[in-house]
Amino acid sequence: MASTRAASIQPKTAAFSPNGKAFSSPKRKDLLTVEHLPLETVLHLLDRSDHYVKFLEAPGPFQKLKILEGRTIANLFFEASTRTRTSFELAERRLGADVISLTPAVSSLAKGESILDTIRVLEAMKIDAFVIRHNVSGVPGFLASRLPHNLHVVNAGDGVHEHPTQALLDAAEMRAALGSLSGKHVAIVGDILHSRVARSNAWLLAKLGAKVTFVGPDTLMPRNVAAVFGVDTTNNLDSILDTADAVMMLRIQMERQARGFFPSIEEYREEYGMTPERMSRSTALILHPGPINHGVEIETEAAYGERSLVLRQVRRGVAVRMAVMEWLFSNEV
């Protein structure tokens, strides 16, 4: 009896694909990865974000747009995040959407089943798009594969897999500052192993013709990383200071030290911190996805100095997310 029941529910297709690729129908529009995002779409999103940055910078009271009027978007942040969630919410509201934001408590991975229930319940209330952040790689792709094709899913960061809107906003700011990214050299510094930002940036920068170097200790480098992402790697931050056009400092999680990935915060700062002294030996732009550990991966002077894009990144975040939400419901490829 049980097997008959299972047979009736089990989808005929194979199980999910972590990147959602296998399930995207021609009609379906999601933003799950940068890896599978066509260059044409990337350029469209960057251009539209330029448009929305100007819109956001315009003086005077804010004029609410009606592009997403009548659309309902659910932001599901299974992993805590104030800035990314706020950024998505503002972007959605400024385009005129109805917005709900949920931060379901996920105390353990074993609750994985309930994610599917959560999203099915919301879908039944007629949601048009889901923005999903989860600490397990592949969850947005898995959920997208189980939703009807007329819905949209945006990955707002999944595990150590991808964070597409972060990479788009980083690229948009670097492009605005450097003119073009073609032939430019971008260094990404720190905990590459646990970074979805590094992964999405590597895919995106390669599409835009930039050369990428991952900088960090070998203990924080994923296996086969150079071959997988087509990047250079080095343990020596000083070696890239004079050639890098932009340096992206990643947040270092303090608990990594306790797990033995590096000996001490002091040694990490000495080897991989962006100090004023290192700033003086470089002309590179400085980026940081936030939140910043002042005095660890980056000194305050560097974080908010004249070559820093850190606060511009935050503003661009809203603009990029407006561009993404607009694109989901548009006829653009």
Binding site: I9, L109, K111, G112, I115, L116, V136, G159
Partner: peptide, 13 residues
């Protein structure tokens, strides 16, 4: 394994 133990994300499955 039952359906609900596999019909989930990779980490939980």
């Amino acid at each position: 394994h039952a359906l609900h133990e596999k019909e989930t994300d990779l980490a939980s499955a």
